[in-house]
Design a protein around this nucleic acid. Structure first.
Lengths: 150, 150
DNA sequence: GCTAGAAAGTTCGTGCCGCGAACCGGCGGT
DNA sequence: ACCGCCGGTTCGCGGCACGAACTTTCTAGC
């Protein structure tokens, strides 16, 4: 199988899993992604647009809906009266943590038939691709590899 | 980087590339995907739902819009008066071929910094994941590796 | 200081997407 | 001949993403 085909199909798979996990947590995939991005710290709207690859107006809507559900909050930026800092509410932080953990678990399980070595190799190669192509931090890397204290 | 993080981020990347390629061909990503699936042969609506992972009603809409743009056609199934076979129009087939080729090229180029060996390993590992998880044929594998007459 | 313009966000209108519920007509077993 | 299943469509809903136009605030240049 060509590398393009492999990448496209695996993306399809990961998306499906991500979407299902979102749905089961009462989130849309976009909201799930927003929560994950906000986990480490608050972001400005434009900054979020850059990370998520969305237009400003798209962000307004996404943050509106997420705020309406009590997941995030718009705080005024103390340094710039125009700007806004989008932060998780405590409820949002709770859900984000849960969603992140469960999604990580499920995506990991997609590679459960690979042995430890293969998983490491796969991670390393994908990490290289991700790095080379300057992919923004759309999914954290916390305890991601709480790993093997080999 | 954990395997989950690597998979999620690379998916994000591939999606972005896929979406951009679609847009530049005047397609939505869903329409592009539909065209790619239909390249080898016509499909029934339910069958398409299975492959794309969509509800019946979602398919109706997608096929409607694609048909309106002259990309696909609904043909009656000669064996079953209820059923329908969705097929590419000649225009649709032309665009599909173009879109497929360009998208393959771009996705491949995401791994351009990997040497031939690494690319092969990456393909093999992803193919394994895709196979183990029964991912439907959402992206063909034609001349996928027409490559290098080294 | 003042003003021209850039930057941060919002609003608005449009089209696409995905879903479930309800529905219709053909198919098939009994 | 009937009744249940199956393939598809319709409808109404909410979410998503965009560009264009607009408001307010910041900042450069003079």
């Amino acid at each position: 199988m060509g590398v393009a085909t492999a990448l496209v199909r695996s993306s399809f798979l990961v998306n499906a899993v991500y979407a299902e996990s979102s749905r089961e947590h009462g989130l849309t995939p976009q909201q799930g992604q927003l929560l994950c991005v906000l986990m480490p710290r608050p972001y400005g709207m434009s900054e979020l647009g850059g990370v998520l690859g969305l237009a400003k107006s798209s962000l307004t809507g996404l943050v509106d809906r997420s705020a309406q559900r009590g997941l995030v909050r718009r705080e005024p930026d103390p340094e710039d009266a125009r700007a806004v800092r989008v932060a998780l509410t405590s409820e949002g932080a709770r859900l984000a943590k849960e969603f992140y953990a469960e999604t990580t678990r499920r995506v990991e399980s997609l590679a459960e038939n690979l042995d430890e070595t293969d998983r490491r190799v796969l991670s390393a190669l994908l990490a290289r691709v991700v790095f080379d192509n300057r992919v923004p931090v759309v999914f954290m890397d916390f305890g991601a590899v709480p790993p093997a204290q080999s």
